[in-house]
Design a binder for these strands. Structure first.
Lengths: 192, 192
DNA sequence: TCCTTCTGTCTGTGCACTTGACATCTGGGA
DNA sequence: TCCCAGATGTCAAGTGCACAGACAGAAGGA
């Protein structure tokens, strides 16, 4: 069940994603070349299509992996505080700080009329939201014993959307935004 | 020329060698099971045969890799001294010390009437000698400018055989043996 | 003596990657 | 305006590699 072939398949996918990641960071979605991803990985162009379907599939896969990594970090911030409100504040601040340094996000939101990749954070943001919910809801339901599950999910959803909005369209500094959101949502969580 | 498939093939071989190495260290040549090597690597038994031909081929391949690694270290000792005699002494001492700690050698020479693997150091020692010559002659010809190439090779050959003999059948302590050989070969090298 | 276990070999099968060709679209230049 | 270069996406045929499964033969143990 963990054959050499399985590991090889996983490794191939990872290396393709690495190559695609580099290409996107360097030149955005438009600068991404299917043939180049294959060449850099030492594999044919067709193999890239076999793995991801089409070019948009490559971008989605890269974004999904990046989102997972992102969330590991954000979740850690959330876990560092027993108090829900405090955890929320820390997680939001961490997320905004991470986002501002993230090469992929920077490439997606880079100046030239905004890259098509930016749609993953806006009009096609479904995947990011769902992945984030999967990761965060699980944690929140387990560690916020005093908050009803539905309320916790609602809270996560609102915070998520606000954070996403600030990533695409920055407002105040991360710490300020985090404090703001925590203050607004605090009473709701306390009354639950 | 460095396709993903090529890298995968190399990796497969390395992992097979790792599994075989562990098996030999644990149970000697007799304890080595072709099926187990495949299983541990996540590959079929047939694939092990495809890669190495037969069981003896596995042992040879493991020994060859180990020999190469061994020689990197010995060569380094040789390179640490500009003076041929001093280099020879250091290399011999290093080789004997490494050998006494080497798990593979220990397994091959372990008590039970000596494992079949020990033949690689005795009656079937050709491969080890040739590999060693390849590595050491090149270095010696380059770094011993005052010694004729043929004399250098002769010297390496004699030292090699003495060292091999001491590995199989230990005599005095490494430092003593090294000093001995260096003293005996010194005049020959100096007269060249 | 039977039974188990391991080596070594062979055959056919399936999968994944490759190759090469092709239709289509788009932007740039003569 | 026309043409062409370069890109995406699709397809079919070819190929290499590992796998499954079976078998013979040797060795060792109950």
């Amino acid at each position: 069940m963990d054959s050499f072939a399985d590991r090889t398949k996983r490794r191939l996918r990872e290396e393709l994603l690495d190559a695609a990641y580099d290409a996107i960071v360097a030149g955005g979605y438009d600068g991404l070349r299917m043939a180049e991803v294959g060449r850099r990985t030492g594999v044919s162009r067709q193999t890239v299509y076999n793995e991801f379907g089409d070019k948009w599939g490559v971008l989605q896969a890269v974004a999904a992996r990046e989102t997972e990594r992102f969330l590991v970090d954000v979740n850690a911030a959330l876990a560092e505080h027993a108090d829900p409100i405090e955890g929320l504040r820390a997680a939001i601040e961490r997320a905004l700080n991470l986002a501002s340094d993230n090469p992929l996000i920077k490439a997606a939101l880079g100046q030239p009329g905004s890259d098509q990749a930016s749609q993953l954070l806006t009009t096609r943001g479904q995947q990011v939201l769902e992945l984030s919910h999967q990761r965060l809801d699980a944690h929140v339901r387990e560690h916020w014993p005093d908050v009803p599950a539905d309320d916790a999910t609602t809270c996560v959803d609102i915070a998520l959307r606000v954070v996403l909005s600030h990533i695409v369209n920055p407002g105040a500094a991360p710490a300020v935004v985090a404090e703001q959101v925590a203050r607004v949502l605090g009473p709701f969580l306390s009354n639950s």
